[in-house]
Amino acid sequence: MAKQAHYTVLGLYGKLEVVANAVDPIREKFAVKDGDIQLLTSAALPENAIVEDHRPYPIVYFVWVLGIVGFFLAIILAGGTGWIMNLNVGGKPPFSWAPTGIITYEFTLLFSVIGTVVGLLYFTGLPDWTDRAYDRDISDGALGLLLKVANVHDQEEAAKMMSQSGAYKIVKGENNF
């Protein structure tokens, strides 16, 4: 996605209602796909409240897969140690369910944590330290409407539309969506 040359426009708005009204005309005008328009905010808004985005984010698969990996890893580690180091400790059996179960529980959860983080990074595309379209006003409460377009003409036009719809600042960029 990043390989193809593209242009970006970032319009900074002050008020939620204003940006809410600005979004739909812009989407219609440039036939924007989900994900090519983003609202950058400093706090989470209810999903699809301003900018609709129906791309799925099934983090749960990462959690499941890594959780299962952790589950079997723990059984191999805790149960397998018992088999290989077959020493009689207090008359306990070589493979003992209680300790294996405990270690398995912990490992499953550990790997689920890892799965969640991997899923988060995968879907958000983080970490990305490149100079992406952004404005530091956003963390102070400004609402940044970020649009990805194909050419300079569209970029100019989108910038104009944003200004007219009440953006107090426009930042234009290239290949930095």
């Binding site: 020493l87 009689n88 400790v89 207090g90 008359g91």
Partner: peptide, 11 residues
């Protein structure tokens, strides 16, 4: 024996 975490004591 069973409580030793490093198998330092066994039967």
């Amino acid at each position: 024996e069973s409580v030793c975490p490093v198998y330092a004591t066994y039967h």
